[in-house]
Design a binder for these strands. Structure first.
Lengths: 143, 143
DNA sequence: ATAAATTTGCAACTTGGTTGAAAAAATATT
DNA sequence: AATATTTTTTCAACCAAGTTGCAAATTTAT
C-alpha cells in the first residue's frame, strides 16, 4: 500500500521529529488500505511497544493538523483515520449500518459536485467527503 | 419550512403514537432548516416541558429507524439530526473546521457519483452523504 | 375496573476523547 | 562533558455523549 511513503521524510518536511511513536502510528496507518479507529491504532502500536492512549490521540491530532492524515467522521462515536499521502488520494467510504464496518471505495470525480455546490456565500470550502451507507455483503448474507 | 408536514399523521403511518414528546421533537426539527444536535433538541423541548435526555435519545433513535429523521455523522462527538420528510430531501452539509458549525446546502445530483461508485461487490448501498469541510464566513472574517 | 402493553423517567454506567501538569527524552548551549 | 532548554510522552483525573436496566407512569385493550 504505502511501501513508497518515506515517513521520516514526510515528518521532517513538516518540522515534526521522527519519533518511534509517530513512525509507529504512520506505519500502522500504512499497513493496510483501510480507515482505522484510534482504539485500533492504539492496540496495534501496543503490540510492539508501551504507549499511552493520550499520546496516540495527540499524534493523530498533529498529523491530521498537518494534512498528513485524514480524519473521517462516520456513524458511531469514534472517528476514523487514514493516511493522506500522495498514494492515498481522498475517496468515498462505505459504511454498513448493520455492523458499522467501514470500507474504502475507489476515488470518484468530484467536479460535478463542486460545480453544483451552492452554499452561503463567503464560506471557503476546502474538501468534499462522501459517505455511502448501506449493508455490507457479510451482513446481507447473515440475513 | 415544514409547515406542510402533518406530524401526527406521519407518526401514525409508522405505527408510532403521537405522544407530546415525539411531536415536540418533530416540531423542533421542523422549526428551522438546519441540522440539530441532540443536546440542542433537548434544550428546545425543555423550554416547554420537563423531559429526560434518555427519552429524547430514544425518540430520535426510533424516528431515525423509521426513516422519518436523518442522522448525520459529522466532525465532533455529537451526531446531528434533521427531518427526512418529503419537504426535506437529502442534501450536502457544510461544516466549518474552525468553529464546528454546520449549514445545510442545496441538494445536488448524485447520479454521477452513483454511476461512478465502485465498491466491493455484494454490498448494498442505500444512501450517499456529502460533507463539505471548510471555513465559514464568520470564522474567515475573524481572522 | 382491571389487565396488558407502551412510554417516560431515573440513576448508574460505558466509552471516546480531553486537560493540565509532571516526568522523561532529545537537542542546544556553555 | 555538564547543564539548560525544548520537545515528547505519561499519568491521573476529568468531561460529555450516549446507553442500559428497571421502575413508575401513562395509555390502550379486555
Amino acid at each position: 500500500m504505502s511501501d513508497r511513503c518515506d515517513f521520516p521524510k514526510l515528518l521532517a518536511r513538516h518540522q515534526l521529529r521522527p519519533t518511534l511513536l509517530r513512525l509507529a502510528v504512520l506505519e500502522v496507518l500504512g499497513s493496510a488500505n483501510r480507515a482505522w479507529q484510534a482504539r485500533e491504532i492504539l492496540a496495534e502500536v501496543r503490540a510492539r511497544r508501551r504507549v499511552n492512549k493520550v499520546t496516540i490521540y495527540r499524534i493523530l491530532e498533529d498529523l491530521t493538523q498537518l494534512g498528513l492524515v485524514r480524519k473521517i467522521p462516520l456513524e458511531g462515536k469514534s472517528s476514523h483515520y487514514e493516511l493522506a499521502c500522495e498514494h492515498h488520494p481522498p475517496h468515498p467510504h462505505f459504511q454498513c449500518h448493520s455492523c458499522g464496518g467501514v470500507q474504502c471505495l475507489e476515488p470518484v470525480s468530484l467536479e460535478g459536485i463542486w460545480r453544483e455546490l451552492k452554499g452561503p456565500l463567503g464560506n471557503r470550502a476546502d474538501r468534499v467527503e462522501i459517505r455511502v451507507a448501506g449493508v455490507c455483503q457479510e451482513c446481507r448474507e447473515m440475513g
